[in-house]
């Protein structure tokens, strides 16, 4: 089973990368683009057990994401 772990900044955390990208987009003249925010994802293959999903939760919070500044979301592919 493959799950996708999405990671993005918590609300209110400064995202300088997206701000820099947004400025370039504005400079390029795309006035309809209002906001960009950055995230990343990992595809993780796990065994088909309850434990698999539980472990995925754990590594998502303890390793893949930085709980101080990031949220994560797990979605089945």
């Amino acid at each position: 089973m493959i799950y996708r772990v999405y990671i993005n900044f918590k609300k209110g955390i400064l995202d300088p990368e997206s701000e820099a990208i947004m400025k370039t987009i504005s400079r390029m003249g795309f006035s309809s683009i209002k906001k960009v925010s950055k995230g990343k994802f990992f595809d993780v293959e796990i065994s088909k057990t309850k434990k698999g999903l539980k472990d995925l939760e754990k590594i998502s919070s303890d390793l893949l994401s930085n709980p101080v500044i990031e949220n994560f979301k797990i979605i089945k592919k």
């Binding site: 400064l14 995202d15 300088p16 500044i69």
Partner: peptide, 9 residues
């Protein structure tokens, strides 16, 4: 909430 640095800024 921690502060995030932006060296470019």
């Amino acid at each position: 909430q921690v502060q995030v640095g932006d060296p470019f800024m």
